[in-house]
Design a protein around this nucleic acid. Sequence first.
DNA 1: TCACGCATTTACACCTTTTTTACACTCACC
DNA 2: GGTGAGTGTAAAAAAGGTGTAAATGCGTGA
Lengths: 226, 226
Amino acid sequence: MNTVLLVEDEKEIRRFVRQALQGEGCQVREAETMAQGLQEAASVKPQLIMLDLGLPDGDGVDFVQRLRSWSQVPVLVVSARSTEHDKILVLDAGADDYLTKPFSVGELLARVRALLRRSRTDNELTTPVVQFGNVEVDLTRRLVSKAQQPVHLTAMEFKLLSVLLANAGRVLTHRHLLREVWGGTHSDHNHYLRIYVAHLRQKLEDNPTQPVYLQTEIGVGYRFQP
Amino acid sequence: MNTVLLVEDEKEIRRFVRQALQGEGCQVREAETMAQGLQEAASVKPQLIMLDLGLPDGDGVDFVQRLRSWSQVPVLVVSARSTEHDKILVLDAGADDYLTKPFSVGELLARVRALLRRSRTDNELTTPVVQFGNVEVDLTRRLVSKAQQPVHLTAMEFKLLSVLLANAGRVLTHRHLLREVWGGTHSDHNHYLRIYVAHLRQKLEDNPTQPVYLQTEIGVGYRFQP
DNA sequence: TCACGCATTTACACCTTTTTTACACTCACC
DNA sequence: GGTGAGTGTAAAAAAGGTGTAAATGCGTGA
């Protein structure tokens, strides 16, 4: 059975949409705020997230970006705001579809079906907790532990680790990592990467001098190997 | 590069959309009828199909159903007809998104990007792995193994191997290989090839002195024989 | 204000890869 | 049998990338 997470503050709409989705045979979870929505997304692991942009406690673009750092779950955005600019921003942030209020139930359900059809229930990408060796990383809570002992990572270290983990097995070029972690302007400071990868190895690898999980691809970049 | 197939009968709109998509770095193929569209979809294998429902020679629902019998390529439907019923029918037939004319270029492109983004990550799950003998090469992850043991290749070695594998069975001239791997300026250093082909044989062939997969074509170049 | 943590910079030793250089081998041809 | 073009190995020298440690700068909260 598919689970849909509904992030919406208006009780009336929640009730309305919930009934429609349940009629489709979906299980429905609800969240009233974006913060709560992110938590639910992590714990419930829904097959689809339906997000209202008009929530008081946060920006939809930010929500999607943070979600996308660890999950590929399809996101259907619903909003009363419907300027072209809004749509483009949130779609490019990683949302999959955008529906303008007021919408018809039929179309909503058809779009939900289309998204669910495509969605793969591949938990690998949607698991907020990544494990390797005796290390555990909780991407949403920003908690890292090694051998049951908490490990403190700085903001940059954590961001770098997140990007590497989100692309497990793949080689990420220096350029790509720098753009993701430091932003476009620093795409030529390869030194940064060496230093921060060294930090991560020091904190997470059993034998930092012979890394197993954080591998170097000389001349290319780095790779997280689970 | 992504290829988009545009199935649309109005010349003006084709020109308009083509320019927008090309501005995104997409290659664009065009079809004026649904029949032609299906043919092109089969031969071109685009990463995305943009379909106008208002074509004279057929029904969009039928088009999508027939397409879906053999292809999972994302379909973005565009139409002047915009009754809820139309949308639901074509979405349930297998289309992925529905945009009502007139639409803004910005939103169109954002939705195209969203669809391409998802199909790309879908494809990455099924990584193409080339096998020969007891050797496995994962081109996208840059991983090579022989008899289940990981084999380390340098950047140049991997690049050379990639080019050879991408043209399996065909002879590649010295000139061609040098231009692909080292760039145009080094197209006369045949020595390099001998050295690096030797490295690859040493690492991948069962009997490096009598190569089976990496063959020499004397006076011409090299060939990868699967 | 001060101490502290973190991002950034600097410095240096080390290692891998690339390029260069040298030499042995094959095989047709004279 | 010599010759020479094309090829395969094995080493060097050169170039460039990498890992570590420590110093600097900068903002924050005590």
